[in-house]
Write a protein that binds this DNA or RNA. Structure first.
Lengths: 205, 205
DNA sequence: GATCGTAGATCAAGCGCTTGCTTGAATAAA
DNA sequence: TTTATTCAAGCAAGCGCTTGATCTACGATC
């Protein structure tokens, strides 16, 4: 039934077996956890026999690392593009929140939730490969929060501002349902309203 | 080596085998996850042979449910006691945050982190037994947030206030280290400062 | 331009180990 | 003597991964 023999797609093609395996693994790791997902589950979701995945990845752990690494690099590219735009701190923050929530909540976006919630299953040797892009991701946010503070738009100013913000946003991946009352855009607006001081009127009255 | 035969302690005694198993399981579930913890790990941590735990719990799943249920009931009792005290909304909120963080972060407090992060491993039939006390836990918070809003101490006021708050607080269980720069008391103060409007001066100037 | 050789990709089977849990006997307190 | 509790051994199923054969697309060859 399945196609045997040579590949039709280049290794980075969206339809390559490698990418199919990563997408299926990300979804399964998110739904059932790394330990709760067997390599047979992954093979079946990709239409392969139980041992055929080893041709593309040496071990199951390498699949996990690849899911996290590639997911983080994609997410990082998205927010770096925003940070480079010439926007006011408020607008930049709005765009970051919107994009972050899309990266976490939109359908098929399973890679970053795996980073957030399967961290524990990483073997020690692989941790630096994930923390490196993660730190750069956080740095983009901290720079923008700093701009907001200088502009007087950020309330509170504690020693754990960024961590509280990440917690509030990332927690949504636990309870958000696409069928719920609020969609991702509305959630982003509500979150911005919660975290920023009310916008001052511009040339009003 | 281990004591054979009859028990010395009543079933609710802190040193009963049942409680030993629950404490060891909570710690292991937190550290390695439910799927990553074998019943042999639990037995070894309690000083038993690999099959002896079944005398106290029918299945491994029942251990997980007991950890979550008893942890939630304890936590619920703690914050209900606070809610009953005659305190201003601000003081009540401060006490709730302090107690919640203690329940999540203090040494040996592994039960609620298991609730928060091993939710997925619950079999469907057991979910209501956990959601019931959880809803009552949330209700205590929502009542206090409502009081803060009416007193004008709560900024923002969105449709997801409580969820953003829980996310920010519960996320600490991911990154908090008892050796870090901030202890639980300081974290609680920082969080309160972040979430509440600055206190108005009382009879100052 | 049909034929062949090669390398890429997969199958089908299964190996050694770990898993959750069972079994039947043994022990000790009441 | 009875009952509560644990041991020591092991079973069936599932685990990550290996193995050797098989098949297909494609480039070089005659």
């Amino acid at each position: 039934m399945a196609t045997r023999g040579r590949p039709r797609a280049a290794p980075d093609d969206e339809d390559s077996r490698r990418r199919q395996l990563l997408r299926a693994s990300a979804r399964l790791f998110r739904e059932k956890g790394y330990d709760g997902t067997s390599v047979r589950d992954i093979a079946q979701a990709t239409g392969l026999q139980s041992g055929s995945w080893v041709y593309h990845f040496p071990t199951k752990q390498d699949i996990l690392v690849a899911v996290m690494e590639e997911g983080l690099n994609d997410a990082l590219a998205r927010i770096v593009a925003i940070a480079r735009r010439d926007l006011s701190p408020r607008r930049k923050f709005e765009a970051l929140v919107r994009t972050h929530l899309d990266t976490i909540l939109a359908p098929g976006q399973d890679f970053i939730p795996v980073v957030l919630y399967e961290w524990r299953s990483l073997e020690p040797a692989a941790i630096p490969r994930v923390t490196a892009p993660l730190r750069r991701y956080e740095a983009v946010w901290k720079k923008t929060i700093g701009e907001l503070q200088r502009a007087g738009d950020w309330p509170g100013r504690t020693r754990i501002d960024a961590l509280l913000l990440f917690g509030a946003l990332n927690w949504m991946a636990r309870w958000y349902s696409p069928n719920g009352a609020l969609d991702v855009d509305e959630l982003a607006r509500e979150a911005v309203k919660f975290f920023l001081r009310p916008a001052r009127k511009v040339k009003s009255g």
